[in-house]
Structure formats: structure tokens, C-alpha cells
Nucleic acid binder design. Structure first.
Lengths: 347, 347
DNA sequence: AGGCATGATTAGATCGATCAAAATAAACTG
DNA sequence: CAGTTTATTTTGATCGATCTAATCATGCCT
């Protein structure tokens, strides 16, 4: 282990008191310029770093941000959160914070972990992901006045009074852009593959598609299918939609998993090409969501979320909450980012 | 925020001194059973949790394990580390540790971060991933006697004297199993797609293939191609290998990225099927490595690393290093796990 | 009963930083 | 130049736990 260098060591070398060293680091403006330099030189020479544990004892601030890491349930979409996590770690570091991980199988377990962590490590804030209807977690944190940001909008209808800071990606804007792209390419009858209504994210993404399609004069009714998220599910749903006589030539999907399934369905003989029509040679166009590695690998056009940006905004909101003077009257800020369409072979 | 409960509060409620409460939690055997119960009841009632910062001040132990989170360079293989990370977080929690994240662009930056973290947060140990030849990091940590484990063998030839604890997955065993699987299926001329020699992991994986092939009486010479890791690279290399007149009917690949490229190459007309031969109908078999989501999605047979297990072993080794009495004579332990072949359509 | 080892509990110091308030130095004012 | 104000630095207490060493009980043996 490295020999410990304390603030007292620096003080001794610089010929000042401990408190002056502390001031140089925390309130440089109250220290005379000359002493400041001298102290800084001593800090440099000894390689001094303030001990977080000791600082935390006095200040009550740990400079830790806690976040849950989830197992990639789906397998394909998992990497989205991991990329967000990477961005968060970088942004946090830039603001002098570190990221602490934890796991939890459900909301209740996560709330228990909040309690554990707050008692033991005292993280300054939490970042929540995968927000959903009637989220126990946000209510609990709001109640205890623990600072936090969510990556994902508060979808709950029941969050009547209190609200919180959040950052999200505008799914509807994304699917709208995808739909527009397809319309521009000459497609008219554009289908949608998504999840059963009830999930905020899913409904939002469907909305962007239907709105845009309707605006172009195409009735979206009957052109949408809902299924659980998975390649096989997507394939089945796509099959179903393409087999119908609606003349669907393109599909916008709520995830890359579904889109991948759709691609498979579109490739299966007798469906990808509509025999006897003038568009005979044109395969069904497919657009996914999240721009996962899979999309890149198989040439799937997809919507890319600005995850590093989102993470940076989360940190920015948190530092405002933490460092800024608490202005109780002010409504918590939030940020809505636009995804960008990454065009590849599939559309 | 939650109102803080200190050890003094518990002591007061239980009618004992602070130290007795501390003893109940840390050395239960020195406390009389009856008082122990009384204290535990008080702990329960107040929801007391020991404050890590304060404990750390006295004991010098933070109960933190630090690990780097890397951006998924490749995109496809990235998820491997993320799954490992998830396992690590779970195992660590079970042993009373938390995982602290950091980022670093190269070895030197990572060493700088070691210094930073050790000075500030004092993590009890590090977990290193992506070990490679002449790793600066392990040398630095060994020199400072900072406890750590690597996920990945020490490949360096230069680590003459000192060694360290490690956990790894036996790549050679994996490719050997894959090759055997292909041999059993009747293939004889089995090619290998890997990376330029010099990378420990890559050489190891190639070795398992060549050894097994040779043992089956097939000379591996000329059946191997080396390229950088990427789908396009894999496709090119596979093309090259299949175009040659060696009669390659199957490919073992060092990664799923390469394998995916190989699949593309195999599908391209005139290559997948060998016209005029009796095996005319049989497509080229392909096996990847890492069993990434992409493999699952496209039906690629691949080698799955037991990542959760590996993570658990890492934590086990660390706790031995940390909690166990330091036995300087003992050689650091290490664990080599076998990957398992997940058979899908591609082979 | 006195002497002593053993068991159980407690008081006081300490880890390394910051806060609060006091002490000292420098600058200003009439 | 005394009397203040302002700028700079220092002293002592404190955060919440554990360590060390001391204290208070008990039991056992001769």
C-alpha cells in the first residue's frame, strides 16, 4: 500500500496549519496568494489527496452516485444501459464524483438497497433507470428527500404533486423521423411492431409512428402489432402483419430485437417480395430502435440514442441539485433529447 | 434525507456503552449472550447501519472494489464485460462489498486513476480486465502491494518473479471443444479465424483449434487466418480462406464478430456451397466465441463464458486476500474455467 | 478469605478531514 | 496614533466508528 499522506503532512511541509491547507483546497479565496502557492507546491510534492472518508464525516457528502446495473434481460437491448453507464462514469468523474453499483431484482428490493446504501455509504444521489408506471422508487426517494435523477420520464399518472429531475430520449420523435424517412423513400403503407400498450416507452414510440403516418394521409389503423420483446416474437408479429393483404412495404420497430425478427420474416420466401407487383424487386424495409451492436452487425437501420449526452445531462442535473443552493420553489429541471437515425442497408 | 442513527443511539437504547455495540457487531463472541440479544434488538428497532466512512477511518477498510468500465470498442464483444460486471456486483454484495467504477483510456491513465482512488476512496482491491503483454498495471499494483485479481491470465513473459491471483476462461479448451464438435459432425478441413499472434487470448484460442485438429490427423498449416476484430474483417478473411482450394467446410472463430463476418462470407453465392461435390447442399459451418447477444439473435453456435462464475471466483479470491491472514509464503491462487459450447443453427 | 486468572463491559484516544470561533496581522479612519 | 475594521491564519471540537487499555465482576484454587 502507499504510505498515507495527510493534511497534517502537507501543513508541516508548507509551514502552515492544517486549516490553512484545507482552505487552500476548499476556499482558495480566503488565503493569501503567496501561501496558497506554497501550500499547493507542498501538495504537489507529497502527492497529497484528500481522504474522502474523513471529509465525508464532516461534510456529510460522499461524492458517490449510485446506480443499479441490470442483467441484460433481453440480451440485445442490454447494451444500451451499459453504454449509458459508461457515459455516466465519465461525466461523473469530470465533476468529481464516482459511480457506485448495486443490483436489485425488483422495485422493493431496490428500495431496500436505497436504505442500506444511505445508511452505509451515504451516496449523494441516485440515478434511476427503467422508470415505469407507479414506480415505488421515485416515491420513496422523494419522500426522504434524497436527491436523484431518472433516465426516463416519470410515466406515472399518479405522481400528482411532487416531481423530480429527469432526462429522456424522445422516442416519438425518433419513430416519427424513421417514418418520415420511409415516406420520403416512397413507402406508404408502413407498419409498426411494438409492445402491448401500457408501457410508457412503448406507447411513446408507437405514437410517433402513427402521428406521422396519419399526417401523411395514411390511416395507421390495423398496421400495428404488439408483442413481447424478442427476436422470435418480432418475427411472428412481422409475419402476421406482412401476410395480411394490407400491402405493408416497411416496418418501424420499437426495438432492435423486434426489428431483427422482422428482418428474418421479411427474408422468408414469399413475403419479402410481392410477386407480380412492380415493386417486386424491393425487399421490405425495416427500422429498429436503439442502434445496438446487432443493428450495426447486420446492417439494420436504427435509431441511435445519444447516451453519452444523456448521461452528461444526468450528472449536470445532479450537480445542480447537490451543489446549487436548494431553491425549493423551483420546479426540477428535465431534458428531452432527440435520437438520430442511422441509415444502413435495411431501409 | 433519513435521520442518522449512530452507534451511540443504539447504545443508549440498549443501556450499554458504544463499544459493546461495536463488539456485538464485530466480535460477537466476547459479549454475553443476553446483552448481545438486547443490543441486536435495539439495532433492529432503530434500523441502525454502520457508517462506512467512520469505520473506514479506524480500520482502513472501505469495503469497496474498484473496476474499470470500458466503452465497447468493438460493439459486439462489449457485452461480455458488462455481464461480468453484473456478476461481480452481485457476488461482491453477497460478501459485503460494493463495486466502484472508473474509466481510463490506457494503461498509464489507469495507473494514474489507481493513485487517485487509493488516495481518495481507498478501495480495498481492484479487479483488472483485459490483461495483456507487459501490463503496466499489474506491475504497479504488485509494487505497491495493493490487493487485486485479474480476470484474464497474466500473459506477460516478463513477470518473472512476482505473480498475482487471477481467474480466466480456458480459451484453448473452448476452441478445442468447438473443433471436436465439428469433427464429430464429419468435418475434416476446419479453418480458424483469429487475430494476429501476440495477443495472449488470441494465441490461446488458436492453439486449442490447431492442437485438436492435428490430433485428428489434419494438418492445420495454412488453415488459419489472422485479422483485426470486426465483422468486415472477418468476412474478408473468411472469403479468402474459403476461396482457396483447401476444401474448408467449417470455421472456428476467435470472436462472434469474426464469426458473423464468416457467416456473411459463407452465405455469399458460390462459396457457401461447393458445386459438384457430394456435400453440395451443406453450408459452411461456423462457430464463434463469447456467445454474445448477436450470436443468439442470428443463430450462431458459439462458446459461452461462465461470466457469473468467473466473477464469483474473483470475489472469492479477493476476500481470501483481504480477510484471510496474509500468508506471504503462499502462491496466489488462480482459477481456470471452461467455456461451454452453445449449439445453434450455424454448426 | 485472599490471590489470580478469566469474562464482560466501559472510558478515552484516535483515524483525517472540516467547522466554528478565536487569535493575530494588516489596513483604514478620523 | 488609538480604535476599528478587514484580511489571514490558527486552535480546539467534532463527525461515527474502532482500538487500546483500564475497570468491574465472577469463579476457582489453595
Amino acid at each position: 500500500m502507499t504510505e498515507k499522506v495527510t493534511i497534517a503532512d502537507v501543513a508541516r511541509l508548507a509551514g502552515v496549519s492544517r486549516q490553512t491547507v484545507s482552505n487552500v483546497l476548499n476556499s482558495p479565496d480566503v488565503v493569501r496568494e503567496e501561501t496558497r502557492q506554497r501550500v499547493l507546491r507542498a501538495v504537489e510534492e507529497l502527492g497529497y489527496r484528500v481522504n474522502q472518508a474523513a471529509r465525508q464525516m464532516r461534510t456529510g457528502r460522499s461524492r458517490l452516485i449510485a446506480i443499479r446495473i441490470e442483467p441484460d434481460r433481453d440480451g440485445i437491448n442490454g447494451s444500451v444501459l451499459d453504454r449509458f453507464l459508461h457515459g455516466l462514469t465519465e461525466s461523473a468523474a469530470r465533476s468529481g464524483y464516482r459511480v457506485l453499483l448495486y443490483t436489485a431484482d425488483d422495485d422493493q428490493a431496490e428500495v431496500d438497497t436505497f436504505e442500506d446504501l444511505l445508511g452505509a455509504y451515504e451516496p449523494d444521489a441516485f440515478v434511476l433507470t427503467s422508470t415505469h408506471h407507479g414506480d415505488l422508487r421515485t416515491a420513496w426517494l422523494l419522500d426522504r428527500k434524497v436527491p436523484f435523477v431518472t433516465f426516463g420520464r416519470p410515466w406515472s399518472a399518479d405522481s400528482a404533486g411532487a416531481s423530480h429531475a429527469w432526462v429522456d430520449v424522445d422516442g416519438a420523435a425518433g419513430t416519427a423521423a424513421a417514418t418520415r424517412h420511409l415516406l420520403d423513400a416512397g413507402h406508404r403503407v408502413i407498419g409498426f411492431l411494438g409492445w402491448p400498450s401500457g408501457s410508457g416507452v412503448g406507447d411513446d414510440r408507437r405514437e410517433g409512428w402513427s402521428r406521422t403516418l396519419a399526417a401523411a394521409g395514411v390511416d395507421p389503423a390495423g398496421l400495428s402489432r404488439a408483442t413481447s420483446d424478442g427476436v422470435a416474437d418480432g418475427e411472428k408479429a412481422a409475419h402476421d402483419l406482412l401476410r395480411s393483404d394490407l400491402g405493408v412495404t416497411a416496418l418501424v420497430c420499437a426495438s432492435d430485437s423486434l426489428a431483427l425478427g422482422a428482418l428474418h420474416a421479411a427474408r422468408s420466401p414469399g413475403l419479402a417480395w410481392r410477386p407480380g407487383s412492380d415493386a417486386a424487386e424491393r425487399p421490405v424495409a425495416v427500422i429498429g430502435f436503439d442502434d445496438t451492436p446487432v443493428a450495426k452487425a447486420v446492417g439494420l437501420t436504427s435509431l441511435s440514442q445519444p447516451l453519452a449526452q444523456a448521461a452528461a445531462h444526468c450528472v449536470a442535473l445532479l450537480t445542480t441539485l447537490l451543489d446549487g443552493q436548494a431553491d425549493p420553489g423551483e420546479a426540477p429541471a428535465n431534458v428531452l433529447l432527440e435520437p438520430s437515425l442511422v441509415v444502413r442497408q435495411s431501409a
